[in-house]
Amino acid sequence: MLAFIAIGCILNMLFTMSFDVLNDFHQISFLKPMREQSLISPYYYSVLLLLGINIILSTSLALLNGFTGLFTMGHAGFMAIGAYTAAYVVKSYLPTAAPMLQLFTALAVGSLSASLFGLCIGFAGLRLSGDYLGMVTLGFSEIIRVSLLNIEAVGGARGMTDIPQFINLGMVTLIALIVIILVKRIRDGRFGRAMFAVKENEMAANLIGINPLEVKVRAFVLSSALAGVAGVCFAFSEGYLSTQTFTFVKSFEIIAMNVIGGLGSLSGAILGGAMLSLLPEVLRKVQDFTGVDIRMVLYALTMILIMILRPKGLLGQKEWKWLSSPN
């Protein structure tokens, strides 16, 4: 934990002008929005922020889609639940509390609320498998989105505004690192092995004493909790929430990250998340250079090319060394 705080302080120094770490930490300005004070331009700051959030999302989906073999198309729904619940609770009940307290409350509320929905859909939908489960989760996430759109307390169609912005780039990076470590630990432990077992041969897993339903529900709860964390990061760094962010397009983007990187590989999920976050921005440069509006065409073409050249994703089943699995 100390190592994480140390990394967080270093990242904070890197991304902000403040080098007075101890004083920072004392005053918890460590948690203030740093977009304006950052060493890097606000544009790059936003891109990196999105990158961090996307990596959290992609990593969390790897638990379901990659490790347990559950095809879900509603990950944006879990993210929305986490974002909206945490934002609502902090805004309504802790508007003047210390940022540190707000942060931990937001993370706890966001991940718990999302995992509660994960639990529900786990029990409701897990008797289905394959494409059918995909359909159920897709419908579920749309129900969440449309419901949020019609709840006035969270801003309805206008969106939710004035959310305190206490999560900065350093914090998102730190949280993303923690999420990666947690997912790695799960993957390498007995629960992770059970997930792979269920994915590869549910019947064989069942016959050596693994309850497949239990494993799947666990995966759902964990994955949705982490998606909720991503939602919290998004809400409290942007300061504004709109249901437009959480459409099924977002869910598909997260699936694409996993597939492009390599389904079943944690490193792949990270690489895919990074690729799909940075690619549009890199292509923006290309567009500026050529002066032709071909960004999204190139984006789609790149994805198609990757899938043709590397049908199993960029990394396939492989892992980077620091994320390698003992299993």
Binding site: R190, R193, F196, N201, G209, P326, N327
Partner: peptide
């Protein structure tokens, strides 16, 4: 019906799942 993407030892270790006492 093996778990082909897991190592040989991990295949056997999956079978200890039900005896595991550590929680999440």
């Amino acid at each position: 019906r093996l778990f082909k993407q897991l190592t040989v030892e991990a295949n056997v270790m999956t079978a200890f799942f039900s005896q595991g006492e550590s929680n999440l």
